[in-house]
Write a protein that binds this DNA or RNA. Structure first.
Lengths: 342, 342
DNA sequence: TTGTAGGCGTTATCAC
DNA sequence: GTGATAACGCCTACAA
């Protein structure tokens, strides 16, 4: 890292020393007053004067210096694959809110283009107090770095690290039950080719529930797609070309489901009657398409928020590794319906 | 801010002092070697040994300490209204990429719920080197804080601060010209009620181009809406109830346009033939609805990226305030078409 | 009750 | 060439 040619300091800041001088006391005294340390026994008049002067001068503590002393930066790293996906946008949003309320800064890292391990190292160099990781398998990161950090994983149950997740297994099950209740028997699945734990669990929950109902989809019905709109589109097209196409499809993510939605509409299928389509995540876009996409709601903002809370608690109390599972629920909309023959 | 009860230090980090001890040299010598200062005259053998030891011990500089010394944190603040809106998600994404490549951290601030002035103060306390502000009128922030910072505004031309913006005036003009070319004369406008400069300019560009073509829409045709899908929906419904509804509508943002899209579809209007609808921003959702939404492309990622570049250049060279305007262009899709009588 | 001394991890300025 | 010494802004002993 190179330092620029010209100092960027625009305006000298007020420091404790300035306050001390102005108030006619020693610098540590000011520190004592300002840190309202419980065992700080300062004369009332002194305290009042210091506070008064600090206010007048507009004193603000330098968090860099504070961090150095306390070995604590009050900053959190947040690593996500990308914001293009509203799922992560929501998670970030929830996390940022809680962090801001608690006085923590959020250092944002997008791993779409920049190497995740690189990002992690940069966060460590900045002495972040902890890291939250979403949409990225923790196993793919250098463990020796990860282990010396406070970590909370999102949507990725783990034995080594704390985690906060939506109930992915239940999500799959609920999806299956919904389609079964509607009378479907020819049920297909489209999942992303990325092997994130959450997606695997959704898939497993779905498969198990089908099995429990005595339904065994042919292998053609089990599609793997690129985790994008286009991936979903292609996968659904493939399903439609089968000898006996499915009457219902569950997509492991809404992004894929929206691609499938597009493909189905283009093929002239009436969603909700001729073909039932069900997504998972429940992103806001779902209500923009027509018919609106039925989905399994995963509380993304809450996941982000809870992750920060959990992380801070871990920092404050050295709590042990913990796992939180948040409930998910069906959001019934227009793309799923009772089976009707074409 | 309160410090937790328990120190969070998980593992003591390697410092220059450790390296010095291990290499058998003084601590400043290590500094000299590691900072590869041009005028650092260190014996080759010493340098080699120090570098060797540093590598073995896995030494990494503490950016907090560096920041303290240099009065420079290598961190940037990024203030946006919210990520739910993909426009800002894209801006953040572009900014983060460049920042990461350049060794800067991005401190993310969402002003949707937390007070923007509060956020700004927090950033200052963290000694950020500069701030990028998007989707928020700079005038609404405390000027005394802003003025002592390096600032780059996005989509908000200003005389006091640097800015990077899409050509909003052109966006409006291009929109008008497109609709005029298609033969429309009953042309309406829906703009957000928030008075962000970019939106005002889009509106003005649009109005001016209409005027130049001798078209003067009645005041009913000039709607103001909440900057949301719902706002767009309501506004379009209002337009449809008019005695003579418009044949074409330009919405100042895609979010609003998507609401209008929904309302039009629900009213049974065939978009592209019975009603032409045109948005602005060109967010990815536009291709998910059917017919796909015609829009004016604004290069959001580039705006974010350029803002960071501009800011860093300002830091390094104390460049003067500058303004960059990036071109926009029409992305023709399905919702606009030649005028046909209903 | 308050001031003095030392240190957090780093760099910069000097003597040596 | 190298090593003290001071400084960045702050806090925590400890001594006065």
């Amino acid at each position: 890292m190179r330092i620029g040619n010209v100092p960027i300091r625009i305006d000298a800041r007020v420091t404790v020393t300035d306050v001390a001088r102005q108030a006619g006391v020693s610098q540590p005294t000011v520190s004592l007053v300002l840190s309202n340390n419980p065992k700080a026994r300062v004369a009332k008049s002194t305290r009042a004067r210091v506070l008064q002067v600090a206010k007048e001068l507009g004193y603000r503590p330098n968090l860099l210096a504070l961090g150095l002393v306390h070995q604590r930066s009050f900053a959190l790293g947040l690593i996500v694959p990308g914001f293009a996906n509203p799922v992560y946008a929501n998670i970030v949003s929830g996390a940022e809110r809680v962090a801001a309320e608690t006085g923590y800064a959020v250092l944002l890292c997008e791993t779409e283009l920049v190497n995740a391990a690189h990002h992690l190292q940069a966060l460590i160099d900045r002495q972040v107090d902890g890291v939250i990781i979403a949409g990225l398998a923790a196993a793919t990161l250098p463990q020796e770095d990860l282990r010396r950090l406070n970590v909370v994983l999102i949507n990725q149950p783990s034995e080594t690290y704390s985690s906060v997740a939506g109930d992915s297994l239940a999500a799959g099950r609920i999806a299956a039950e919904h389609l079964l209740e509607l009378g479907h028997e020819q049920i297909a699945f489209i999942g992303p080719s990325t092997s994130l734990p959450a997606f695997r669990l959704r898939e497993r929950g779905f498969a198990q529930a089908l099995q429990a109902a005595g339904i065994a989809p042919p292998s053609d019905y089990w599609q793997r797609a690129d985790a994008s709109v286009d991936g979903g589109r292609k996968a659904l097209r493939a399903l439609l070309t089968l000898g006996t196409p499915p009457t219902a499809v569950f997509c492991a993510t809404d992004i894929i489901a929206l691609g499938a939605h597009k493909a189905a509409s283009k093929a002239g299928l009436k969603l909700g009657s001729e073909l039932s389509l069900l997504g998972c995540d429940d992103i806001e876009m779902n209500t923009l398409v027509s018919p609106e996409l039925t989905s399994i709601s995963v509380p993304q903002r809450e996941l982000g928020a809870l992750a920060v809370r959990q992380l801070i608690q871990q920092l404050d109390t050295s709590t042990e590794v913990s796992t939180h599972i948040l409930p998910v629920k069906l959001s019934k909309r227009g793309t799923t319906g009772r089976l009707r023959r074409r």
